[in-house]
Structures are given as C-alpha cells and as structure tokens.
Design a binder for these strands. Sequence first.
DNA 1: TTGTAAGCGTTATCAC
DNA 2: GTGATAACGCTTACAA
Lengths: 326, 326
Amino acid sequence: MANIIEVAKRAGVGIATVSRVINNSGYVKKETRERVEKVIAEIGYVPNEIARSMTLQRNNIIAFLLPNSIHRFFGELLYHVETVLYEQGYKLMVCSSSERLEKEIVYIDMLKKNRVDAIILLTNNDVEPYLDKRLPMVSFDRRFEGVPFVASDNYNGGVIAARHLLAVGCKHFMFIGDDAQGEQTAVETEVSKRRIGFFEELGKHGITDIINVEYPLGNYIYIPEDVHRTINLHREVDGIFCISDAVAAEVVKNIEKNGRRVPEDVKVIGYDGGESFLNLGKRITSINQPPRALADAIVELVQAQIRKETPGNRIVPVNLNVGETT
Amino acid sequence: MANIIEVAKRAGVGIATVSRVINNSGYVKKETRERVEKVIAEIGYVPNEIARSMTLQRNNIIAFLLPNSIHRFFGELLYHVETVLYEQGYKLMVCSSSERLEKEIVYIDMLKKNRVDAIILLTNNDVEPYLDKRLPMVSFDRRFEGVPFVASDNYNGGVIAARHLLAVGCKHFMFIGDDAQGEQTAVETEVSKRRIGFFEELGKHGITDIINVEYPLGNYIYIPEDVHRTINLHREVDGIFCISDAVAAEVVKNIEKNGRRVPEDVKVIGYDGGESFLNLGKRITSINQPPRALADAIVELVQAQIRKETPGNRIVPVNLNVGETT
DNA sequence: TTGTAAGCGTTATCAC
DNA sequence: GTGATAACGCTTACAA
C-alpha cells in the first residue's frame, strides 16, 4: 500500500509537505496543496495511523475493561461510552473479562503493550496490583487507590427508593442485593451505598426491622434459589428494593408465581433504568442512573488525565422512574 | 518508557537477542536468556506493540461495526465475538453506528487508516461503495458483493416456527417484522428468509391467508403504533411469528393489554433466544440463533481471509425453544 | 549463538 | 513555503 514517500515523489514535493497537507498544519501554497491532494486521490493513498502513533507516542485508543456486554446495563453503558469517545476522536477497544481476574490480568498486560491512551475499569476483582498507575485510568462504581471513579448517586438512590415505597404505603421492607463480596475481594464498591441509603432513610422514619438479603456476586443476572425462598418466607414484606432492575424482574416473577400480586400485595423497585429495559410484562419502577451522563463523566475524567490533570471523582444524579411495580 | 535498546545495553547484548528472548524465537543461550529476562524484570520493560505492528504490517486488531450494544442480541453477539477473538489472540475495536450511514462511513475510513486486520460488518445500510475489498471482511446477516457472510438458518427458522404454531393448534396466522427496507436501502438481508420460510411452510399446509405486517426498520426495539392497531384489528389471528424476541415481547404486552390472553387466545413466537433475555413476565417461545456458534463462524471466516483463503458463507443451525407464549 | 543494520511510515526540527 | 533528516521501537535477514 502506497505511503507518504510515494505521494511526495509523484507530486514532486518533499514528504514534509505531504504531511502538512494531510494534517493541514503549517504553510502550504494553495497550488502545491492541490497538486498533492490530486495525487492522494489518484493513487488512493490512506495515511497510516500506526506509523503516526509511533511518532506521536499516542494512538487515541481507549480500552474499556468490563464484565460483559450481555447484561443490559453494561451493554448500554458501553454503547454510550463508545459514542462519547467517538465524538471526542477516540477509538474504543472492548475487553470483556467475564468477571474473571485471570482474564483481566492478561488484558491489562495486553493494553500496556499496546500503549492504549487510557483504561476504563469496571470490575469487582482486585486488579490493583496489576495496574500501571502512570496510565490514565477511570473506574466505574469501584474504588482503586489513585484511580478516580465515576458512580451514580447510589446513596441518594437508596434514599429515594425508601421514600417512594413509604409514599405508596409500604410497612415492611426488604433489600435484595448481590453486593455481598467480603469473602471474594477487597474492592470497595460504591454500589453498597444503595443499601446504606435505603436503610438510613427508613431508619429516620423509625423503621429498623428491614430484612436484608445479601448474596454473593454471580453473573449479575441469575439469583440463587435460597433468595427466592427467603422472599417467600417473609409474607409480611410489602416493599422490596432490589439492587438492579434485572434482579427486580426476577423477584417480581417469583412473587407472582407464588400467588401474590405486584404491586397490589408487594411493591418492588429496582435500580438502573435506561432504554434497554424490555417492556415485556410489567415496566419496573426504578432508580434511573442515566448511562449517557455516566459516559460523559467517565470520558471527561479520562481526558482530564490525558491532559495531565488530577481530577476528582464524579457522582452522577439519579432519578425515580415510576413503572407498574409500585 | 524503556525500550529494547535500553534492555540490550543493560544486559550487554544486541537488540536482536532481546527480540529473540521476548518472542522466544530463534536460538538464545540459556544464560543469555536469563540475563535478559532479569533486566526486563528489573526495569519493567514492556514491549511496544505499536512498533511491532509497524514492522509486522499487522496489528491483530479486528473491528466490529454494528448498530449498538443496547439491543440484547447485539450486545450478546458482541460479547461472544470478542471472547472468541480473544481466544485467538486478537483485540476488538467496537464501532457503533447507531444505524447511521454517515457514521459508518467515518468509521470505515478510520479503520482503513488504522490498518485493522479485518472488519466484521453488521449493518442495513449500503456501505458497499466505501469498503476496501482488499481488506478481510465478514458480514453478518447481510449480503455485500465479495464479502462472505454468516447468518443463522433464517429460512429453516421460519419453517420451524410455522410447524410449531401448527402443532399447537393455531389456525389463523400473522407475521410481524421490520425487514421492510426496500425504500431505505438496497441491501439484501438474510433476515427476510424468516418470513419466506414461514409463508412457504404454511403454504404447504394449504394456508395462504397469512396477515403480513411489515414496517420499516427503526431501532430494532420500538414498533410503530399502527402495527399494534393492525394486531387488534385481526382478532381472528391465533398464531403470530415475530421477527425478533424484542418485537414478540412488545406484541405479547399489547395483546394482553387489549384483553386477550397469551398463549390461551393467541400464541406468539419470536426469534433470537440467548441468555440475555430477561425473565420478566413470560418467557418467550423463540427460534434460537446461538450467539457463540455465530461468533465462532464469524471468526473462522475472518481468519480464513487473513490466511488469504476465499471462504464461502456460513449458515448456523437454529433450534426451537419453547417458552410460555405458545 | 549473537550482533549490525535496513526497513516499516509517520512527524517535527531546522536549514534554505 | 519547502525539503532533508533524525527520531519513534521493533523484526529480521545477513554476517560473523
């Protein structure tokens, strides 16, 4: 494939001039420019970005290390992150870890070798020892030493969920979440604040006997059988806050299968929102964490670091979206 | 950041030897190797893949140009494609077009500049004029001149859907799909064969008065209001085949909202399957096109072309997954 | 076994 | 305005 030298020869100019034309930088006489452009069109010359990255020591590639793009929220966040990066002139490399630390380690190593400009991290594993802190990094929903993070306002989300369930008349509460990860990893997740906000707000209303159902993080979709049993054990519960819409959906299904009605007998509220949520069955009442706003915040933190700044964390506001389950 | 020369100096060897150690190619005396490895570990040297790509004229990056990763099937296919590529030593660049031709054009140009090793295409737009046919390419579900494609056995899927609805006693049929794209693009989609297989199989059973609901391709998720009206107009219909599970979900919801029961009064079958389908409400009976198998086929065609072979198309078998809507 | 040197395709400095 | 030329960091003949 033709290179810049070929173009220069045919146009009877030096390669520096061709470079100036391609990047329209510096002074180039109009005629010269036109001559060069003509040759470029004729021989179908396409500048080689790899060589360009080589000299510039920067390739405009950013990596997103995440569990998968199957879970609706991840797929949606990925889409928005990629869209925002595109608008800013970056390319995105996806790295699905399938929640496996070994794979994350291999990926991080690969990304270092490939000299990506930055890494966006979404993981529950303790990848900290493998990170090169000199590289711009942003984490979503998790804290890593020296890495700024973006999260939705999880605490406030819990508060809003509590207030909403109270407002629609619930008396006995339950929280269901897969953020019980003490045994698996030391990573501090922002997500737990949903639970804390929920408990503290109910506490302010004198409610303290909240059933707290915790289970270890799995693949974010299926929930263990004994969680379902626990739900059925507590027939007095009439208000349930679930850590995600996916979990809420499972819970609603379970409750209806076991002869109680949603929302008449039990009200259920989830977390996530977004447009990917399929309208099959009931539209779930949910705390929305807007993926585009999250993506904007993530990319801003990435760019700030590329500019050698040291940005702080970013908390994105959430809002209540009332559906058919409360 | 340290380079190969630095390592060579410190180890007191030539750069070729360091290269041999890194890639463990060629002969290197055991002692020499150990000395070099020690230095590499000491100074934390990480080989530069950009420079490597430069020399090798190949970067092991493959691009996937698709509408988005929000639609459940796309997100799932993306995940599997990326997983398979990872297993084969490739990296994946995602390029979401949001179904917009302009964006696809910009992306294709960017990918040429970046010298990606191959492009995987999933689009309904006529991108053919912008493709560089010398580049390895594979298309999913669409035909482009000179580009091999992978598709599920759409025709057979239609046949299976017809047989299943017949088997469960349906008498009056409807097909609903967004593959009516004659006005928008000239691209031949494999997806239309779902409709053809369905019609032809019913025809074999003497059934020809099938209500055919076509609407223009939108964002794959929402379906136009008048489609819902048409459904309600034809209360005699008791068997509906929808072009995707997402559409089927909307249809089920609509029918139930309008006072008929699924599956008692009307049976609905969709297309896609996969694990991403949330269990909210009814589990949809569906023609499964296994995303991992599709991903395997796609990557095989990619690799064959990288090896300079000229592979044919690949049709992946589908299977019926009976849920709660038939 | 090992080292030297050419080449991959750019950008950018510095003369002219 | 424009053109040589030196990086950028690697792989791989070819020599030794």
